[in-house]
Amino acid sequence: MNPTRKRRMTLVLLIVAAVGIAAALTVYALQQNMNYLLTPSQVLSGQGADYKTFRLGGMVKSGSLQRDAHSLRVDFAVTDGDHDLPVEYTGILPDLFRENQAVIATGHMDGGRFVATEVLAKHDENYMPKELAEAMGKAHAKHHVGAAAQEPTP
């Protein structure tokens, strides 16, 4: 490689490396500020206090979903496994919304309740046919029952 090309290559690589490092530092610095959502644990530990409105993310707690018979109002609890937060929402829910489904709600805290203005369902990365999902669900249920049966009763 002749000297001119070598010089050009070094220059180009240096600039790209410099921009890369700058971008990496920016991304690293934004890590905390770029959170799209807060989990119930984070909210309960007071991290939501800085925001007027924020996004709450987690799973819809199994058995917590209650629909109002006369309006579009729904009440449910969002959980991250450690803590739950009650949520109320009035409006149309997306197709994927159900219990044990990951959701992201936008809204604000009103006392100990989160009042949502928008509820989005987060899709997971799994794609499978219905038959397979049912078969897996059955296997899963069996496993649960089996595991429960094995547990020693006090």
């Binding site: 770029m34 799209y36 149309i92 829910l93 997306p94 197709d95 994927l96 919304f97 928008e118 509820v119 989005l120 369902a121 987060k122 899709h123």
Partner: peptide, 12 residues
Amino acid sequence: KPMWGTWWTWDA
């Protein structure tokens, strides 16, 4: 729109 419930959101 049908799955999440929104056309667009400013996530990463």
